[in-house]
Design a protein around this nucleic acid. Structure first.
Length: 226
DNA sequence: GACCAGGCACATC
DNA sequence: GATGTGCATGGT
């Protein structure tokens, strides 16, 4: 029940979360385009608001890469307004779209044939695409086995003793990747489950009430974290 | 009214 | 390098 290795603890977390919430079947979007667009729109934003924006884009016929390239920024901003930060996100979406057309001829599916590390570097070079957005696109739109770290993963890992106060995105990402099988479906489901428990129990306040991970507060040996 | 939400870039010290 | 701030809507 209280494994003392990071691998054992992460496996136990996963099983407890799966038991509590069942398979999440993420990402909540049907197409690669929708997932990539959603990854930018959801930056520091409630998913419900992102859904409104995506509905607007769909209704306007703007959920494909040619339409996103051609739509006027002012019009795009109007469509994604419910997602908040709409001027900023308009620029970020345009940056992503311009990159796709400039570097990959507008062919998003062709990205599946790239070396994952090279693709990640390219995504990170786009202004407005940071590590979480890049990893979300890689994992959920392109099935690349890369673990997505977000505010919830950080909070869950901290509250349950997996990691200390100070850490970087890459350190937390490595904690999961180094201690779990390198499988996209597992990373996919695990991140989704963390968001599920996070939304319900792992908010900044109150702390973890009724959380299915309650009691999983074992301090993993520091040496085991690599 | 305060706080929160699948971040990120940029300024300033 | 660390630390602070702007960006914005909609729900609780």
């Amino acid at each position: 029940m209280h494994p003392s290795t990071a691998a054992g603890t992460l496996r136990a977390f996963y099983e407890a979360l799966l038991e509590a919430y069942g398979p999440q079947q993420w990402w909540p979007g049907q197409t690669r385009t929708e997932i990539a667009v959603g990854a930018i729109l959801t930056q520091n934003t409630n998913w419900k608001n992102v859904e409104r924006a995506i509905d607007n884009l769909r209704a306007a016929g703007c959920l494909d890469w040619a339409a996103l390239r051609d739509v006027e920024p002012a019009r795009l901003a109007e469509l994604i307004r419910p997602a908040g930060y709409y001027n900023l996100k308009t620029r970020r979406l345009k940056n992503l779209v311009n990159w796709l057309w400039t570097e990959h001829d507008g062919d998003f599916d062709s990205l599946t044939r790239m070396a994952p590390d090279e693709l990640r570097e390219q995504l990170l070079s786009i202004n407005g695409v940071g590590p979480e957005t890049a990893d979300s696109i890689l994992l959920y739109a392109l099935d690349v086995p890369t673990f997505v770290v977000d505010a919830y993963s950080a909070r869950v890992a901290q509250r349950h003793g997996l990691i200390g106060e100070d850490f970087t995105y890459d350190e937390l990402k490595a904690l999961f990747e180094d201690n779990l099988p390198d499988e996209a479906p597992l990373y996919n489901e695990y991140h989704a489950l963390i968001v599920a428990v996070g939304k319900q129990h792992c908010k900044p306040r109150p702390l973890c009430e009724g959380c299915p991970l309650e009691g999983f507060d074992h301090q993993v040996a520091k040496a085991d974290l690599g």
